[in-house]
Every structure is written in structure tokens, then in C-alpha cells.
């Protein structure tokens, strides 16, 4: 297996005249946690959707564990997606299914697991994210934001992925719940050996979950370095983003 889990080269994508990604180059080493930071509208979510195959890039390549996935579709793409887990910003739980069916969705529908076994499996994954068996029969609408995030995380790890993606994992959560989600993410990376790619602009979360950080600005990665270098980055873009000043090379549109 390649030591680079995700390798992105010269990735471009446009929506009409809006050139969102303008040549992204990024490597994510296996077993590490990389966080992509960047302002709103900088293309972080689009980058994630390109890797997941939800959006097709205009040009450039994406390799997962050494195999190219750009241009794949149908069953071939689905085969790759079995190696991915994804925690969405709004959790994206299926409203019509109870919590346990959300968690066990993949084994239930794609591995032909019996409902009884899938139920038992979902309880195990719910316990892994600190949730009681009592909520297994609840529907997503009956859960708090933090519980929804944890159920979303349980669903993501239930696929037993190689790579797990987190889209703004702490957005909309109180600081304590945010810290708990960060601890669970860290646990996924260290205990389960997943490779993690997170996009966020919560700097407290960045420091807790990342080994490396990359800054996306105007469709390009303008800086990448170890997390401990965030405070002395030797890069004016990162310095401005971390300090949150309005003056600097990053143009703020009012």
C-alpha cells in the first residue's frame, strides 16, 4: 500500500464563470489527520465532494492509495466509496429511518446483513461514540445536534473505512460538545488507524484533531505544515487566518 492515502494533483473545477478550484495539489499521508482550513466560499466543501466522487472535476487527478478515482462512475466508484466514511456538516441522517438503521445502513443494504445482526452491530457503534442503546429506536428529528453528530460519526465508522472525512464537524455545537466530537475524531484516527481529512474553520478544533494543516485560498493550497507551526507559520495568509485580522493578503468582502 502507498504511504500516501490521498494524492491530489492540479485539480480544477468551475461552476459557470465561478472558477472554484484552480489547481489544488495536496497529499494526505496514511494514518494521519489533515485539516483543510479556509474562509467561507474558498472551495473546501467542493474539494471534499470531488474526492468523494459527488462532483466531477474539470481537470486534474485524485489518487486514493495509489489508484486513480477521477472519471470513475457507477459500480467502480461505489467500490471505492466502500473505503470512505463521511460525517456531514448537518449530519445528513436519513429522517425516515430510526437511529439504528441509520448507523447500520451500509451493512444492512450493501452487505446483506440480517436486521437482527445489523441492530446488534449498530448498538456497538453507538456505544463507541458514547451513546446509549435507548436512542437506537429514536428518529433523527428526536435527537439534539450533538447526538446527531455522534450518530453520523457512528454511521461513518460502521463502514469500516480506510479514510474518513469530516465536514465542519463542530459547527453549531457548544464548546463542550465540540470538544467531545474532536476527541471522538482523534480516537478514530489513533485507535482505528483511519486516515482523516477534515474541513473546518474552527481553530480550536483544528489544534485538537490535526497532525497537519493546509490553507485553501482562492482555489489553491497556499500553505501546508505541521499543526505546531500554526502559531509561527512564516506565511502571511495563515497568520491572518489564525489571528482573524481583516487586514492582510486575504481579501475580505463586506
Amino acid at each position: 500500500m502507498s504511504s500516501t492515502a490521498i494524492e491530489i494533483r492540479d485539480l480544477h473545477i468551475s461552476f459557470g464563470s465561478n472558477h472554484v478550484l484552480r489547481g489544488v495539489n495536496l497529499d494526505v499521508p496514511s494514518g494521519s489527520s489533515l485539516v483543510v482550513i479556509g474562509g467561507s466560499g474558498s472551495g473546501k466543501s467542493v474539494l471534499l465532494k470531488c474526492i468523494l466522487g459527488i462532483l466531477q472535476p474539470d481537470s486534474g487527478t485524485i489518487h486514493i492509495n495509489g489508484e486513480e478515482i477521477t472519471g470513475l462512475y457507477g459500480r467502480h466508484l461505489d467500490n471505492f466509496r466502500t473505503r470512505f466514511g463521511m460525517l456531514f456538516q448537518g449530519s445528513a441522517l436519513f429522517d425516515s429511518l430510526p437511529v439504528w438503521e441509520n448507523v447500520a445502513f451500509y451493512p444492512l443494504h450493501n452487505q446483506g446483513m440480517s436486521r437482527k445482526k445489523a441492530h446488534e452491530l449498530s448498538l456497538r457503534y453507538l456505544a463507541n461514540v458514547g451513546l446509549d442503546a435507548d436512542i437506537a429506536e429514536f428518529y433523527p428529528a428526536e435527537l439534539s445536534g450533538g447526538m446527531r453528530k455522534r450518530v453520523g460519526l457512528a454511521r461513518a465508522i460502521a463502514t469500516e473505512p480506510d479514510i474518513i472525512f469530516f465536514d465542519e464537524p463542530t459547527t453549531g455545537l457548544d464548546p463542550i460538545m465540540g470538544d467531545m466530537i474532536d476527541q471522538l475524531i482523534r480516537k478514530c484516527i489513533i485507535e482505528y488507524g483511519f486516515t482523516g481529512l477534515t474541513i473546518t474553520h474552527d481553530m480550536a478544533s483544528v489544534r485538537r484533531i490535526s497532525d497537519e494543516v493546509a490553507l485553501l485560498y482562492e482555489g489553491r493550497i497556499v500553505w501546508k505544515g505541521a499543526t505546531d507551526k500554526l502559531d509561527h507559520p512564516d506565511n502571511p495568509y495563515v497568520e491572518q487566518f489564525v489571528t482573524g485580522h481583516t487586514e492582510g493578503p486575504i481579501q475580505v468582502q463586506f
Binding site: M86, A92, D95, H109, N110
Partner: peptide, 21 residues
């Protein structure tokens, strides 16, 4: 309404990431 809500709340994207068409 149901599928539209699934679309705007990323549930359809979630289906895709779970290798389900």
C-alpha cells in the same frame, strides 16, 4: 417534498458515500 428535503440536507450525498445508488 421528501426527495427535495433529502437533497438540500445532503441526505442524497450521504446515500452516495454509503455506496448506494
Amino acid at each position: 417534498a421528501e426527495i427535495g428535503t433529502m437533497r438540500v440536507t445532503e441526505q442524497i450525498d450521504a446515500l452516495k458515500t454509503l455506496a448506494t445508488n
